[in-house]
Amino acid sequence: MTSRPTEAQHLRDLALLRRVRDRMDREYAQPLDVEALARGVNMSAGHLSRRFRLAYGESPYGYLMTRRIERAMALLRRGDLSVTEVCFEVGCASLGTFSTRFTELVGMPPSTYRRQAASDASGVPPCVAKQVTRPIRNREARGPVPPLA
């Protein structure tokens, strides 16, 4: 039988999860894994993964990859880097994994996105293009996530 966390523990966990999410937002291009993220907040990798999914609707890895894809989209819109260069610039070690995840989130392969973005974004300010083309995370697509219990 497991005990339910107290309200104070719940708030401490949320603060730690925000630290993890903020670190991924800042260091998305660095080699990050769940074990390293968990060590940074003195949690086990399993506990971090479960609590992160409850709080944000996706796994830490899913969140990190979405962040990387968002940055990749901006770099591809600029058009001065190849798809392979963008892949490594955003912290992905595998072009295949990058292309697969990009296609899942954006709906087209990165090379197609790059060609299309070059023609579609002419004359559109980068801040508007970023907002309009932002990939939809799993949580946003499914609706609100139930509160942590």
Rank of each mutant, 00 (worst) to 15 (best):
D22E: 09
R23G: 01
M24A: 02
R26C: 07
R26V: 09
R26E: 13
Y28E: 08
Q30S: 14
Q30P: 01
Q30R: 11
E35F: 04
E35R: 13
A36V: 04
A36E: 04
A38V: 08
A38Y: 07
R39N: 08
G40V: 01
V41I: 02
N42V: 02
M43G: 02
A45I: 08
G46T: 05
L48F: 03
L48H: 01
L54M: 05
Y56I: 02
G57C: 03
G57D: 00
E58F: 08
Y63D: 01
M65G: 11
T66S: 14
E70F: 08
E70N: 09
R71K: 13
A72C: 12
L75K: 12
R77I: 04
R77P: 01
G79P: 00
S82M: 05
T84W: 09
E85L: 03
C87Y: 03
F88V: 06
V90H: 02
V90F: 01
A93N: 10
L95F: 14
G96I: 12
G96V: 14
T97M: 12
F98V: 07
S99C: 11
S99N: 11
S99F: 06
T100R: 12
R101I: 08
T103W: 08
E104I: 09
E104A: 10
G107Q: 13
M108N: 06
P109K: 14
P109S: 15
P110T: 10
P110I: 13
S111Y: 15
R114K: 15
R115L: 14
Q116W: 12
D120G: 15
S122E: 14
S122D: 15
S122A: 15
S122R: 14
G123P: 03
P125E: 00
C127R: 12
V128L: 08
V128Y: 01
K130T: 13
K130C: 14
V132E: 11
P135Q: 13
I136P: 12
